[in-house]
């Protein structure tokens, strides 16, 4: 797919998005609510055939953001799905590991450091925190001393 075809393809999921931002020639951000992230990620992986790179979790003031970075290697694009989790008390989002084994580690990591509950994750054990780390303390959240 060239650039135009990719944009046309991405417009198929327009109804699930809040907005689309293109920051440079080959970087696109797709903004969505947490409920829609699962379907959008599945679409990017299975229909667009993009390659999963990594996910980033950010503690914004009024929500948690999960950024799923995908690479569309044919034309060197980075497509980032930016999902907003509005519930700050019990942050949760559908896991994408069941259809994408590559996401297993990073979802476990985000669960460790930010306390996001990945629903349906097959193996949500600790990845980077030590076994004796206290429960309920999430080091990457705001307010935790640096």
């Amino acid at each position: 797919m060239n650039q135009e075809e990719l944009n046309n393809k991405l417009s198929e999921i327009e109804d699930k998005l809040i907005a689309t931002e293109q920051t440079t020639d080959n970087r696109t951000f797709l903004l969505c609510e947490a409920e829609n992230a699962y379907a959008i990620n599945k679409f990017l992986l299975e229909d667009v055939r993009a390659r999963f790179v990594i996910a980033t979790c950010i503690d914004s003031d009024d929500c948690y953001e999960i950024l799923y970075h995908f690479s569309y290697d044919e034309i060197g694009w980075v497509i980032t799905v930016k999902a907003f989790i509005r519930d700050r008390e019990n942050p949760a989002i559908q896991s994408i590991t069941p259809f994408l084994p590559a996401a297993e580690w990073i979802e476990r990591e985000m669960h460790d450091i930010m306390g996001i509950n990945f629903k349906n994750h097959p193996n949500l054990r600790r990845l980077i925190l030590a076994d004796d780390w206290p429960d309920g303390v999430y080091p990457e959240r705001k307010g935790v001393p640096k």
Partner: peptide
């Protein structure tokens, strides 16, 4: 055949 040097120079 993925290589960022070629795909996203």
């Amino acid at each position: 055949a993925v290589d960022v040097r070629r795909d996203d120079p």
